[in-house]
Design a binder for these strands. Sequence first.
DNA 1: ATTTTGCGCAACCAAATAGTTGCGTATATA
DNA 2: TATATACGCAACTATTTGGTTGCGCAAAAT
Lengths: 114, 114
Amino acid sequence: MVANKSKSVRRDIFQAIADPTRRAIIFLLAVGAMTPNAMAEHFNSSRQAVSKHLKVLVECEVVNQEQQGREIHYHLNSDKMKEIEKWLEQFKQLMESRFNQLDSVLDKLKNESK
Amino acid sequence: MVANKSKSVRRDIFQAIADPTRRAIIFLLAVGAMTPNAMAEHFNSSRQAVSKHLKVLVECEVVNQEQQGREIHYHLNSDKMKEIEKWLEQFKQLMESRFNQLDSVLDKLKNESK
DNA sequence: ATTTTGCGCAACCAAATAGTTGCGTATATA
DNA sequence: TATATACGCAACTATTTGGTTGCGCAAAAT
């Protein structure tokens, strides 16, 4: 038995989008669900390579699988994508706080020069 | 002589934010410029480890260095952060196109049922 | 002038990544 | 029923990552 991967390896949205092939897969799936074979045809990458990326994306909970006969349709979990926006929002708030500090410094200077 | 790193290794904003320590550094620098020592004190990570992350961030053009005596002040290049937003915008547009397709399908069904 | 501090860099290491080839298996098709 | 197709998985590889320790050097403090 192998140790639980989710405990040892980083599996989050930021890891998911770190690879350009995975970003391309995400863009493809944004348009609609797809099978691994269909995806592999879109960029010059082997089916197995795509399959491995899909495994990572499943582990990161960015995509879901839907079995249909011998095909597996991969769907995008767009909720997970929102975590990027959430992080960016936090970032922007920090940036604003920085400017607010700068503003207060400028205000101070203004008052002192009175 | 070693091969140019920028040619072999991926150095973009997505690589920059893939690591949690680097994301923490970005948040710190969002508030204001800082030296490596000051950053290292903020999370339990050695100065050298932080230094390595900063090197990656410089290569990804997410931060700039400003030498001041023996200290180096690291500044955030917030323009680079906009590339994430840009990518998210593209993604959202694709998602909308998906829903527009769905809408047109629904419209079609509606017309057919007339 | 000597010591301390701030920093980058090289060397090393274990682990993870991204890809490949070669299976096995289940579902379709002939 | 025999064959083709869709897919995941294991094993192997080269490269990258993220961390460490141990320098060396220049600037600051003593």
